[in-house]
Design a protein around this nucleic acid. Structure first.
Lengths: 201, 201
DNA sequence: CCATTACGATACTAACCGTTCCGTTCAGGA
DNA sequence: TCCTGAACGGAACGGTTAGTATCGTAATGG
C-alpha cells in the first residue's frame, strides 16, 4: 500500500496496452453477436489475438471483463439549458445517436436478461444503470424547482415514461430508432406533466 | 394426412398428460430460476420427474419446449367498455396482476435478451409478443374512431408509451409493480393524446 | 395375451467452456 | 550485455450439456 498500486514501478515485462484494448473491443463485438451467455473467453481471446491467460491476468472472470467492456460505452450526457423540453430533446437525441452508432442497443437486452438471474452481475451493473438515468432525473428536478412541471409527480415514474418507449424498441424490436420520434414522444409525455394541462385530480 | 394427425387412433400406451404438464411447469420454474441460457433439459426432466426421452418425444428441441411453456402464460385480455380510460385501466390492471402472480415478469427479460441473438427464437416468439400488444392497439383504434383521441397519432408509439414504464420496471428492477401506478401513468399518457389538451403544433 | 407405444433410467457422443499451467518472450535495471 | 521477473500465447484440465440410443417395464387396444 506504499505509493502506487497500479504502476508496477519497474520489474518485468510491461503489460501490452494494445492487447488490453483489443480484448475490450473483441468483448463488445462478441457481446453484440452472441450476447452474454454466448460470449466465450476463448472467442474473445481468438478475436483479440491474445492468449486466454492475458485476459485472466487483467480480469478475474468473464463477468468482470464484460462489465468493464460495457462501462466503456458512452452514456447520457447531462444538458442544462434552463428549459425542460430543450434539455430532454438534446439528451434523448444524443442518446438515440449513441444507441444507433454504438453496440449499446445490441448489448443491453442480453445484459438485462442475464441480470435477472445473476446476482453478481446485477450487483455490478445496477449502479452503472442507475447512474445513466441520473441526467434525466436531474433535469426533471430542475424543472420542478422552476415550476415548469407539477411538483406532485413521481419523478422515477416520469423517467420510466420517458425511457420506456426507447426500451420497448430496443428490447423487442432491436431495430434502429428514428430520431424523429423523440419530439412527439417528449411532447406526449410533457403534456401530461405540465401544470396548466388539465388539473383533473 | 388421412383424418387425424394428433390422435394416434389406437395403438400402444397413450402419452401421459400428467407428465406433459409437469414438464411445462418445470420448464417455467427453471426459466424463472436460471433463465433461458441457464435452463437445462436434464434439469427439466429431473424436476418434472420424467426421463429426457419423454421430453424429446414431445418437443424437437429445448427451444420449442421453452416457447410452448411461454405460450402457456396468460396475456392481455381484451376489454371494450366504450371508454379508453376504462379500457386501459382494466387491461393494464389485470396485466399487472398477471405479471405479479405468474412467472411472466421473471421470464420476459431472459427471453428478450436471448431473442436478440437467436433468430430461431425471435421467429417463434415475435408473433406471440405482437399478438399480446393487440388488445391495447385495438382499444386505441376504437378511441380514435370515437374521436376520443387525436387521429394524427402513431398508435404504435402510444402503445410503447403505455407499455414502456411497465417494461422498464420488469427489465431493470425485477420487482413487483405497484398497481397504484397504473392510474397516474395512464393519466399522464392520456393528457398528451386527448384532443382538447394543448394543440401546440 | 399380444402387438405396440410410452415410460423412467442410464449411458453415450460430441462438443464446448471457464480457468489454470507451462515453456517462451521481452523490456528495463545492474 | 546479461539477468530478472512479469507478460505472453497456447495447451491442458475438469466439468457441463444437447441430443441420441438402449434398456427393461408399464399401459393401452384388439
Amino acid at each position: 500500500m506504499s505509493s502506487n498500486a497500479q504502476t508496477p514501478v519497474s520489474a518485468g515485462r510491461p503489460r501490452s496496452e494494445e492487447a488490453h484494448q483489443a480484448i475490450l473491443d473483441a468483448t463488445l463485438a462478441l457481446l453484440v453477436e452472441a450476447g452474454f451467455s454466448g460470449l466465450t473467453v476463448e472467442g474473445v481471446a481468438t478475436r483479440a489475438g491474445v492468449g486466454k491467460a492475458t485476459i485472466y491476468r487483467r480480469w478475474p472472470s468473464k463477468l468482470h471483463l464484460v462489465i468493464e467492456a460495457f462501462r466503456q460505452l458512452p452514456g447520457l450526457a447531462e444538458v442544462d439549458t434552463g428549459d425542460l423540453v430543450e434539455d430532454l430533446e438534446q439528451m434523448l437525441g444524443s442518446y438515440l445517436r449513441i444507441l444507433n452508432d454504438t453496440p449499446l442497443a445490441a448489448v443491453m437486452p442480453s445484459l438485462a436478461g442475464e441480470r435477472a438471474h445473476n446476482p453478481e452481475l446485477s450487483e455490478l451493473i445496477d449502479p452503472i444503470l442507475r447512474g445513466r438515468r441520473k441526467p434525466v432525473l436531474r433535469a426533471l428536478e430542475r424543472a420542478v424547482e422552476r415550476g415548469e412541471v407539477r411538483d406532485d409527480l413521481d419523478l422515477e415514474l416520469v423517467a420510466d415514461l420517458i425511457f420506456g418507449p426507447i426500451a420497448m424498441r430496443v428490447f423487442f424490436a432491436g431495430a434502429r430508432i428514428n430520431p424523429k420520434l423523440v419530439r412527439p414522444a417528449i411532447e406526449l409525455v410533457l403534456k401530461g406533466i405540465t401544470p396548466r394541462a388539465g388539473a383533473s385530480d
